[in-house]
């Protein structure tokens, strides 16, 4: 059972501003989706490792520094090279 309170908390964790109407709608839909995902519970419990990609240490990037050429910031709200951001109150 997915509750409205849970969805409210999750939308806070995801930084969404949801109206009460949206909250009710999402709660109902996510409840439906989650109960579908619960199908995983009926999977025969086997001692299988979860999938994961692997790589050897030797294949990792070497420690060399290079500068990126070009503008990487896409905001016009800037000051003296800094990016303007909301206050951290």
């Amino acid at each position: 059972m997915v509750t409205k309170e849970e969805v409210k908390h999750l939308s806070w964790l995801s930084r969404f501003d949801l109206s009460d109407e949206e909250l009710s709608k999402y709660t109902a839909q996510i409840e439906q989706i989650i109960s579908y995902l619960d199908k995983l519970d009926s999977m025969p419990l086997e001692n299988v490792e979860p999938v994961k990609a692997k790589k050897n240490l030797a294949d990792l990037r070497n420690d060399q520094a290079t500068n990126f050429a070009g503008e990487v910031l896409g905001t016009k709200y800037r000051k003296d090279g800094f990016v303007k951001a909301p206050r951290m109150v």
Binding site: R61, D63, A65, T66, N67, F68, V72, G81
Partner: peptide, 30 residues
């Protein structure tokens, strides 16, 4: 003691640099 950042090739020597001059698409999370 490293020359480059953990996940990109930007330098580790960031102190005293112009703000946002030691960045690339990766460390800015583009």
């Amino acid at each position: 003691g490293l020359k480059s950042k953990l996940f990109c090739s930007c330098g580790t020597d960031y102190r005293g640099k112009e703000p946002n001059s030691n960045v690339c698409p990766t460390c800015l999370g583009l």
